[in-house]
Design a protein around this nucleic acid. Structure first.
Length: 882
DNA sequence: GCGAGGCC
DNA sequence: GGCCTCGC
């Protein structure tokens, strides 16, 4: 017989997660239901995964708990629960009542403590507990009989912690988690800990000594810097530990048996789900329970099969014989379309492939690992441009196929990208998220059933999202730009960028030595050793110990950012050393060590990931590593560019960047005659602006004037404020205001453009770009002045920044096509917002220079010319204008 | 999660 | 204005 399982849920933690994970959802008469909906879906998901025998949901009760008795400031920084969430608590409790799930709350205690007590109770009776929460503190409860399920980003994913997982993640036992917290504190709960000791030190001390008490007892032997801090704050540390400790002896006077789960009360559950307009949940109950399931058992459970109440499960046909594989090929060819889902990893390759040629039609499933011929079948369909593929993530499919040396042609729809265009501010566009958002369906987590369900959802989403793209006027942008860009980016990622590891190593050594000597010098000047990387410790040294004047504060303490340090540079020699240290530390950790660690051992190159659905404006982003922020401004950092080299000896690095693309777009969109004439005449735009703003002939513009005008130009593009400009060019706000007024006098078309864009965004609720890309701006109608001002700046910046993104994306697609068509060896390897970077064999150089210039400059016809500057060299550092 | 700092 | 990474 299997061991009984007790599912214990942290109601507060989970409802908060759900509230933030699901942006907006309400009934037709305006009752907000997003958190309840998210919670219910999470609950169903876990019910399926765990199949518990007992269930309880614990809630906090009251604002004051026993912890406040010993520490009045406990959780003092917590924000009040927003009203839109507060109203959902009663609704949730009602849902739980109809689910016949017991809830628990107790005056003076937090949900955590109730949970801890329940796990104790369960343990004493040999019952296994599973705690579901979003709060890492619960990890202290983990034991052989207690597992913790932590919610991850979104609501569809969770991470399970048993003892081994806690050790792997933290290097300590579950009970030691509270000792760690005693030392380092927790800002979110306002638990102080020991000032100057962070997670690193705390982990080290606890790993070496065992408990906080042991650390304090053995204090004498510790290095001075820690001993002093501990000595001073030992009481606070012990108190912090006490605060962080979950009370597992709450006087509850209950028995586990009270929480025995009998399954939901379907009729009343049906009733509340329809009241809350959870349509698919209603349907799934009617479908699966048949409406006459009065026993309360979950559908199918009595027969011993899986509980299918929550998840979207579909029929599918597993194909294994040669005839069946042939049938799949035939069906794909005949229909010319395939919703396609590949599961697996980039490392191990494809595991399952599922596809369907007709929404709602047969779903075929292939096990690529088990079946000979399956991979060829699926890869041939993928390679056939005549079969339009519908994918959840086309670029990932390309990577999976790449692992088998195959490819995908004819990507006809990518749900991730469609959802991104429909709302680029939405952070999650996985198929699971979209299924929930657009179809109110929960997808199974893994396995064959998941692949099949995903294919079913793909087809339905394609129809729905396609229509929305047409309705919003973004179908051209989608089909002509974003979708073709998928394989362009995949090619760039796969091609990678070659680096010279030798140069990287020698830079590591050199920089390391410079850092070491700066560190010694800083310690000497400070009179003690401390962690310079910790703004908290640094602030303590500079402002408390050394008494430097406080310039600026952050939410958590003294500000020590570069602008502050530059202001303090004259006060003490240590400040310059710290600035130099910061610069080198950044260089080494991010750009030298960081890049080194990301060299692919197989290819010897660096393969970044380009994200096509991240930014709110339409730009791309890059990560692992971010190759869009390689230093250039300062000489010391710029040298890192020497490590980026061509793919073959003799090849060259060619960079092509748009000159002033954002200001040119501003000229075009605003129609400002002054600005247009400057670009038409090919003038230096900042000099011209200076001449206008300072009312002097262009020949009399000084470097100082030009640099201020340049800041004004930047400011305009960002949606200027006198405050922002005064900070950037270090003049008074009044002075900055004068520049802005004078600018608007000379460039009245720009002023009109700004006013027009703000009005338009307020009117429609969104801003648009030249290719009709859309970004919703709810902030622009806020009653809060600061929030609204932010919305207004966004309304100006988004059309400009986003149109620049439109243009370079168009150019990328065309250049890539042309390179392929002509079967050239030149590779486009990077994009840095207004710049494209190529690896070029010398014999193709002339062709490529012309082609790139041509396509970039003519990507879109504007009222001003688009101008591209080309640079060429043996690496990314030594490029010179051509 | 925050502060800091790199890019366009 | 828009990002990503590092270290705390």
């Amino acid at each position: 017989m299997s061991i009984n399982k007790f599912l214990i849920i942290d109601g507060n933690s989970l409802i908060h997660r759900a509230f933030h994970a699901i942006p907006q959802l309400s009934t037709s008469d305006g009752i907000i239901t997003n958190a309840v909906y998210g919670f219910t879906n999470m609950l169903f998901k876990v019910l399926q995964k765990i199949e518990p025998d007992y269930i309880a949901v614990a809630f906090d009760k009251g604002k004051i708990t026993f912890r406040h008795a010993s520490y009045a400031d406990y959780k003092a920084q917590r924000k009040a629960t927003p009203p839109e969430l507060r109203t959902q608590f009663p609704l949730l409790k009602e849902v739980l009542r109809h689910m016949r799930i017991q809830t628990l709350e107790l005056e003076n205690y937090e949900a955590d403590d109730i949970i801890g007590t329940l796990t104790n109770l369960a343990e004493s009776q040999g019952i296994e507990s599973v705690v579901l929460t979003g709060d890492r503190d619960a990890l202290q409860l983990v034991s052989p009989r207690v597992r913790v399920l932590l919610t991850k980003k979104g609501i569809t994913e969770m991470e399970e912690y048993d003892e081994g997982r806690v050790w792997d993640r933290y290097g300590v036992s579950p009970t030691q988690i509270i000792d760690i917290k005693g030392l380092m504190g927790d800002t979110s709960d306002n638990i102080p800990g020991v000032p100057g000791i962070g997670e690193k030190t705390a982990l080290k001390l606890i790993q070496e000594h065992g408990t906080l008490e042991d650390v304090i007892a053995g204090m004498e032997k510790l290095p001075t810097r820690w001993r002093n801090k501990l000595l001073e704050h030992q009481d606070q540390a012990l108190l912090s530990k006490q605060l962080a400790t979950i009370d597992r002896q709450v006087p509850l006077n209950i028995a586990v048996q009270q929480f025995k789960w009998q399954g939901p009360d379907y009729p009343s559950l049906l009733d509340i789900f329809s009241r809350l307009e959870f349509k698919t949940l209603v349907h799934s109950i009617i479908d699966k329970a048949g409406g006459n399931n009065k026993t309360g058992a979950l559908p199918g459970q009595a027969a011993g099969s899986q509980n299918e109440l929550d998840t979207h499960n579909v029929e599918y046909q597993k194909m294994s014989t040669e005839e069946e594989l042939e049938q799949i090929r035939y069906a794909a060819g005949a229909s010319g379309v395939a919703a396609l889902e590949l599961t697996g990893t980039r490392e191990a390759g494809i595991n399952y492939a599922a596809l369907s040629n007709d929404t709602g039609g047969t779903i075929y499933l292939l096990s690529v690992r088990e079946q000979t011929g399956a991979l060829d079948t699926i890869a041939d369909i993928c390679a056939d441009p005549q079969v339009k593929k519908i994918c959840a993530d086309g670029k990932e499919a390309l990577w999976l196929l790449h692992r088998h040396n195959r490819t995908l042609r004819g990507l006809g729809f990518d749900t991730r990208l469609a959802a991104y265009l429909l709302n680029p501010s939405q952070s999650q566009n996985t198929l699971a998220d979209l299924a929930l958002q657009y179809l109110q369906l929960v997808l199974p987590a893994e396995g064959e059933a998941a692949a099949a369900a995903r294919v079913d959802v793909l087809g339905r989403l394609e129809q729905m999202l396609h229509q929305k793209l047409v309705d919003t006027g973004m179908d051209r942008l989608y089909y002509d730009v974003e979708l073709p860009l998928v394989s362009v980016l995949a090619d760039m990622e796969m091609e990678g960028v070659a680096v010279d590891p030798q140069i990287l190593c020698s830079m590591a050594e050199e920089t390391g030595q410079q850092i070491d000597s700066l560190v010694l010098e800083i310690y000497r000047l400070a009179g003690e050793e401390f962690n310079i990387n910790s703004p908290k410790q640094l602030g303590d040294i500079l402002f408390n110990k050394m008494g430097l004047p406080v310039v600026k504060k952050t939410k958590t303490g003294f500000s020590t950012d570069a602008s502050v340090l530059e202001e303090l540079a004259s006060s003490h020699v240590i400040v310059d050393k710290i600035l130099a240290y910061r610069q080198l530390a950044k260089l080494k950790s991010t750009y030298i060590d960081g890049l080194f660690g990301l060299i692919n051992p197989t290819t010897g190159r660096i393969h970044t990931t380009f994200h096509q659905d991240v930014t709110a404006t339409g730009r791309l982003s890059s990560s692992n590593p971010n190759l869009q922020n390689i230093p250039i401004r300062l000489q010391e950092g710029r040298r890192i560019r020497r490590v980026f080299i061509p793919h073959q000896p003799g090849n060259l690095i060619l960079t092509a960047d748009y000159s002033q693309i954002e200001l040119r777009i501003l000229a075009h969109m605003s129609g400002d005659l002054n600005l247009i004439s400057a670009f038409k005449q090919g003038q230096d735009i900042h000099t011209r602006t200076a001449a206008e703003v300072f009312n002097v002939p262009m020949e009399q513009v000084t470097p100082e004037m030009r640099s201020r005008a340049k800041a004004v130009n930047f400011g305009i593009v960002y949606g200027i404020s006198d405050f922002g400009l005064s900070r950037d060019i270090k003049v008074s706000r009044a002075e900055a205001g004068k520049y802005i007024r004078s600018y608007f006098e000379r460039y009245s078309g720009v002023k009109e453009f700004i006013d027009r864009k703000i009005a338009e965004a307020r009117d429609k609720g969104y801003a648009t770009t030249l290719l009709n890309r859309r970004r919703y701006l709810p902030d622009i109608s806020s009653r809060n002045r600061v929030t609204r001002a932010f919305g207004e700046r966004t309304a100006i910046n988004t059309p400009i920044q986003g149109s620049a993104a439109d243009i370079i994306k168009l150019a990328m697609v065309r250049i890539h096509n042309e390179l392929k068509k002509r079967q050239m060896a030149t590779k486009m390897i990077l994009q840095v917002h207004d710049e494209l970077i190529f690896d070029v064999p010398p014999e193709e150089l002339d062709t490529v220079k012309n082609m790139v210039t041509e396509y970039m400059e003519n990507a879109l016809q504007l009222d001003v010319p688009l101008v591209v500057d080309l640079k060429l060299g043996p690496n990314w550092y030594d490029v010179r204008k051509v």
